[in-house]
């Protein structure tokens, strides 16, 4: 059992969990993830490690309530515990050498974009951070992100906070202003990462994306998380989760992530 040292509601859909996990805290590098298994009947859920403190032996994950399992995780309180936490899994983000970096987070993706940006910043890179949300009520980690970014841009679909528009609009604007980046890191909904990659491909900027396929074991044992990158099949849990965004088949990933969606059952009904 893993104790929850802090459960903090960040917005109506998103909860931050700080967990006592000494071994993982000692090993984790930016971009790596853990798998949480709340109780005997629960699913195994992959979540990127948003923060860690090797001294106090803690890791932090940020959960967005999307389905039954994540909803249940979001109801946990400080002092509760989680049956199983395993990690750190996957490869660390490779931003070696990049000096001018633009990190883009979309929605709960900011929970992963933030530690990546922080790590880049710590290595002395110039880091611009663009954070996009649907509306003001969904904003998370605003102060934290603002504190570590050289330039922080908040943008919302409906303009209820920050600028109005999509993260791609903010990125285009920066590029038009003459900003030069040698790396873009995009983390968020698949459609957002795909759109960012379209912009950066045209501009010839190397782009890393953090993929979020369906996973079970997270150790390369099942291939449930396989994605096509540069025409080759990769297992996101061991080869990723970060990949060169210009090589990723995003449409296939979106289709695969709908494997267990309700609309699939409708699709079966049609087939009969």
């Amino acid at each position: 059992m893993v104790e929850i040292l802090e459960a903090r509601v960040l917005n109506p859909q998103i909860t931050l969990l700080k967990l006592k996990a000494e071994r993982i805290a000692k090993k984790v590098q930016p971009g790596q993830f853990v798998i949480l298994h709340q109780d005997e009947k629960a699913e195994r859920i992959p979540l990127t490690i948003a923060d860690s403190d090797p001294q106090e032996g803690t890791i932090t994950v940020i959960v967005q309530a999307a389905g039954e399992s994540t909803k249940r995780l979001c109801t946990l309180k400080t002092g509760d515990s989680i049956r199983d936490v395993v990690g750190p899994l996957g490869q660390a983000t490779d931003f070696e050498g990049a000096q001018n970096i633009c990190v883009i987070g979309g929605g709960v993706g900011c929970a992963i974009a933030y530690p990546s940006a922080k790590a880049c910043h710590r290595r002395g890179a110039h880091v611009d951070l663009i954070a996009g949300f649907k509306n003001e009520s969904l904003v998370i980690l605003k102060e934290e992100m603002a504190a570590i970014a050289d330039e922080f841009t908040l943008i919302s679909d409906d303009g209820s906070t920050g600028k109005q528009g999509f993260v791609t609009d903010a990125l285009k604007e920066k590029l038009e202003q003459g900003k030069k980046y040698d790396l873009v890191i995009a983390i968020g909904p698949i459609i957002m990462m795909k759109m960012v990659c379209k912009v950066t491909e045209a501009a010839g900027i190397k782009t890393l994306v953090s993929l979020n396929p369906i996973m079970i074991d997270g150790t390369g044992m099942c291939g449930g998380c396989r994605v096509t990158v540069g025409g080759k099949v990769k297992f996101a849990c061991v080869d990723g989760p970060d990949f060169d965004g210009h090589q990723v088949d995003f449409d296939e990933l979106m289709q695969r992530n709908r494997t267990y969606m309700e609309d699939h059952r409708c699709h079966l009904e049609e087939a009969k």
Binding site: I216, D217, M221, C222, G223, V227, E252, Q255, R258, T259
Partner: peptide, 14 residues
């Protein structure tokens, strides 16, 4: 082979 609905036996059994 990456279509939704294609699984390894390991995934199904797990």
């Amino acid at each position: 082979e990456t279509a939704a609905g294609v699984f390894s036996a390991n995934e199904v059994l797990t």
